[in-house]
């Protein structure tokens, strides 16, 4: 069984708008997958279903063996502990320091302080922000904030990292730095799914690329580029 299996998934919102039609998709362990497409094509809906922010109207979605479509509200945490999620707007706790923002994701498991400290420092080192541990998010640049968000997403060692336009708010140079961090994470064995509008990144990375349009999977390239679209 693939790590992520999407079978005959349909998503229709209460407003009557259908965002996804009969989607079938498999993503293997360790893959790096871009999801691209015009605004309103269903990219966000698709990955929201992957971390169970939205539920599919029909079909099944298996993520790491869990049927997300049937996951009860009270059990969502079981899925979230298997995956990491990174957003365009970082979603950091503004009143907590960089260290606290990351430690927070470990504290909920009741780990001892020393273990938390070790893991946080290690992951801060990985994203190159060890020296910023005591700063608050507003004292950091956009790129640095995104790196904190990535550090928080991977500190638990998730098998899958989902990124919703992680470079959407960043300049090209910073975007490229973020992509380096994400590539490093992927090379360590983490499956990476990334929604993006950034043409340069997709072309440069030459990774599997899935194109959605009007809620349907239009193309699935092994080494996609925007040009091939």
């Amino acid at each position: 069984m693939a790590q992520i299996e999407i079978k005959d998934v349909k998503k229709r919102y209460k407003t009557g708008v259908t965002a996804i039609y009969d989607l079938n998709l498999e993503i293997e362990k360790g893959e790096f997958v871009f999801i691209i497409g015009p605004t309103g094509c269903g990219k966000s809906t698709l990955i929201k279903m992957l971390y169970r922010e939205e539920k599919p109207t029909a079909g099944s979605i298996f993520v790491g063996g869990l049927n997300v479509a049937k996951l009860r509200n009270g059990s969502v945490y079981k899925l979230r502990r298997k995956i990491g999620v990174v957003f365009q707007d970082f979603k950091l706790l503004s009143k907590a320091t960089v260290y606290e923002n990351i430690a927070f994701a470990l504290e909920i498991f009741g780990l001892p302080k020393s273990e938390i400290h070790g893991k946080v420092i290690k992951v801060l080192d990985l994203v190159g922000l060890k020296h910023r541990a005591k700063n608050y998010p507003h004292q950091l640049s956009g790129g640095e904030q995104q790196r904190v968000a990535i550090a928080r997403a991977i500190v638990n060692g998730p098998k899958i990292l989902i990124c919703d336009e992680p470079t959407g708010n960043l300049d090209p140079k910073t975007s490229s730095e973020i992509m380096d961090v994400l590539t490093a994470i992927n090379q360590m064995g983490t499956t990476l799914i990334m929604v993006t509008h950034n043409r340069d990144i997709v072309e440069r990375m030459k990774k599997r690329t899935i194109l959605l349009d009007a809620g349907r999977l239009v193309k699935d390239f092994k080494e996609g580029t925007y040009e091939s679209v």
Binding site: V76, Y77, K91, L93, A105
Partner: peptide, 16 residues
């Protein structure tokens, strides 16, 4: 509510 949504996001159970 952002704080709560982040808690949910990083895998905190409802009771946590």
């Amino acid at each position: 509510k952002t704080e709560i949504s982040i808690m949910r996001l990083v895998g905190a159970s409802n009771i946590t």
